[in-house]
Amino acid sequence: MDIKEVDGWTAQALSELAGAADGAALEALRVKYIGRNGMLPALMQGLKDVPAADKPAMGQALNRFKTGVTAAVAERKAALEAAAKAAKAGAFDLSLPGRWPRRGRLHPIQQLIDKTSAIFRRMGFTVADGPDVETEYYNFDALNTPADHVSRDVQDTFYLPGGLLLRTQTSAVQARYMESRKPPVRIVCPGRCYRRDTTDATHSANFHQIEGLYVDEKVSLADLKGDIDHFARELMGPGVKSRFRTHFFPFTEPSVEVDFSCHMCGGKGCRVCKQSGWIEIMGAGMVDPNVFKLAGYDPEMVTGYAFGMGIERLAMILFGIDDIRRLYENDVRYLAQF
């Protein structure tokens, strides 16, 4: 055994290890060269027969064999593992569709009822409720609507036998609520209303409103302005403002129509606001003294404001819905987008 031979073995081992095709072949080579019964112990055994003068050089040659092979095994092992990992990763199809049983959504009208109610709740309003089937008294008389007012006409209001009707406005809840308790009152009433309108792109015979009522000592029109301004910002964005225009409703005096500045263009004018910079959102006003008297409140002792707005109209503005009928058609491909 001479040094040349040992170095020859080293070269052969390194070359074989570099070609090991898999973990099993690599292990066989490791056993063959540096295993307990492999070549290295046998060569070490032969060291004792080497003349003393050659021993240091022979020892170095054997050391080259040992470290070289050991390192080559580790290197090859790492390379094989990396290749195996890459192969595994490549077979994993990240692009397959994900799986989860279902998702559910609330109807857009519900979402807006919930959103507006939540804003008013934070402002100290309580959500109140009343029946869809109303008497003429609560829907009209208690709201100071003249006996011959057009809105009472069978052309405009759905009637049921027995002089009952489907409420035309959530304001009907006002009188019921005031009759049942003493001031202060601070309520919102979201709910379904009905008008005998032919259904088209912007009218629905069955629709939703949210009504608000605040009665206390010294509630003023300026309070209404402050509260509506706050609501406008909460609903449509921080820069949105409100403005009042004089109007007429039988159950409020003064009465106003309320516009919000356009949330799309910031008031500069766009398609959504029909270039005016403002969008008509609600009717409001100070509760008419007659409404208080009918509810058993003394108009000299309390004042109050009331407001009401259509949820479908809000949905059309905020979601950009072009046709109100889509909201009641219930095509899941449409509803699931909200």
Partner: peptide, 17 residues
Amino acid sequence: REVLAGLGLQQIMNYSF
């Protein structure tokens, strides 16, 4: 309503008549 939507149901709305 939240529970039903959470269970994966889509809410619908139909007319009262």
